[in-house]
Amino acid sequence: MIEVRELEKRYHKLVAVAGISFKVDRGEVLGFLGPNGAGKTTTMRILTGALPATSGRVEVAGFNVFDRPLEVKRRVGYLPETPPLYNDLDTLGYLRFAGRIKGLRGRRLRAALQRSIDACGIGEVTGRLLGNLSKGFRQRVGLAQALLGEPEVLVLDEPTIGLDPNQIQEIRRLIHELAADRTVVLSTHILPEVVQICSRVVIIHRGRIVADDSLQNLTSDSRSLEQTFHDLTQQ
């Protein structure tokens, strides 16, 4: 479903992503791990077409992100690192706008809005200005935006950050459910979350892949994911 080959991204001189390759199949939940500044956000932004790469190839659902960006964007729901909200819009107005630019209209739009709002538990704040929402609710609205229209591919950059414990469980369950017939890539620093919902793990460190394996293999021989992560991302 997603295929990344020799992807490189440089910000002027700084190499943020140094030629990484990996694949994600339909139905997989890929945990994208790495220390701060490893290049996770950068990679995810490139996957969704929000940021151009310096070199390399990315294919999503069979479309090249650089040649057919619109085809890719139509199929991907993306939650950026900071929720991309308009502080001067109310929650419902914002989600309606997001739905419209995803091509949803009329009854389909209303149904999609309702599903997203229920799934993320934001029914009580639909009338409030986004600028006045608490951090956790801002995160939920960002997530609701990514889920709109049930895209085939979900790219979630630290989706549960800032959420309360109840909501974290809700969202994890939701991602798990969604994963049945879709593809999810999510980054996180919460390793138990990975153990709970991911089927595969890619660890990157300083722009390079240091591990790409199933969760089972990484956590076999009685080593915890923490230890593995620690060993691979030292020096």
Binding site: A50, L70, K73, Y78, P80, P83, P84, Y86, N87, I101
Partner: peptide, 17 residues
């Protein structure tokens, strides 16, 4: 304003030209 606040990423990651 959109580029500063980060909301521009919504436009960039959706099928908008």
């Amino acid at each position: 304003e959109e580029r500063r606040s980060g909301s521009y990423e919504l436009l960039m990651s959706n099928p908008v030209t």
